[in-house]
Amino acid sequence: MQQKIREIASRVRELRELSEISVEQMADSLNLPILTYQRYENGSEDIPASILYKIATDLKVDMGLLLTGDMPRMHIFTVTRKDKGVAVERRKQYSYQNLAANFIHKKAEPFLVSVDPRPQGDAPQRNAHPGQEFNFLLEGRLKIYIHNNEIELEEGDSIYFDANYEHAMEALDGRPAKFLAIIL
């Protein structure tokens, strides 16, 4: 997985340079300390999916290009077979599969997200990103933390929220949870 992280980081750096955007400008746009952004870009730290989405937006490219190195070409439809989505390992508690990496000019980014139970004593990892997010719980139980609220979801429940507010997801009952996430 470390090789994949370095490949994504290299594509981000190359596209940023081609776009004539400085490291400082990109870090500022992402609301990140420069050193954090530099760790992302040199591949020493994995780029969270929410940050990768914002980078793609800032660089005016499809997120699929950053993930795979290939420009999406499908414009009528794309099919992603079970367990064949483009893997995006973002944090130790979450794993993502991009379900439409090959579709060009998407208006949303669909992901299949798996959340492992967090180790005792670890706090849920919060993040925020531009836009809105829709989550539909497929398996397990999930607690969503968002803007001073804690909401528990059961299989079949969904939530739609403003992703600019810090949020986190936590698998409950000591079991992994799986949900469909659509980022708009």
Rank of each mutant, 00 (worst) to 15 (best):
Q97P: 02
D58M: 10
E139C: 12
L32G: 06
Q93N: 14
E14T: 12
L142Q: 09
P33C: 04
H129Y: 06
R91H: 07
Q120A: 11
S114T: 15
K82G: 12
F77Y: 11
E166T: 06
E170H: 08
N148W: 06
G69V: 07
M1C: 04
F77I: 02
R13W: 02
Y53W: 03
N102C: 12
E24C: 03
P119M: 07
Q125G: 02
M71D: 08
S29M: 09
A27V: 07
F111K: 01
G121Y: 06
E45H: 08
F77Q: 11
N148P: 05
K82L: 14
L30Q: 05
Q2F: 00
E17L: 11
D46N: 08
T57R: 06
I55T: 03
V23L: 15
G140H: 08
M71H: 02
I159R: 03
D28F: 09
A163N: 08
L35D: 14
Q97L: 15
A177N: 06
N135M: 13
L99P: 09
P176Q: 02
E24D: 08
D122V: 09
E45C: 08
F179H: 09
Y37K: 14
A27C: 07
E170L: 13
A108L: 15
N164F: 00
R73N: 12
D122L: 12
R141F: 01
P72D: 11
A101K: 11
K84E: 15
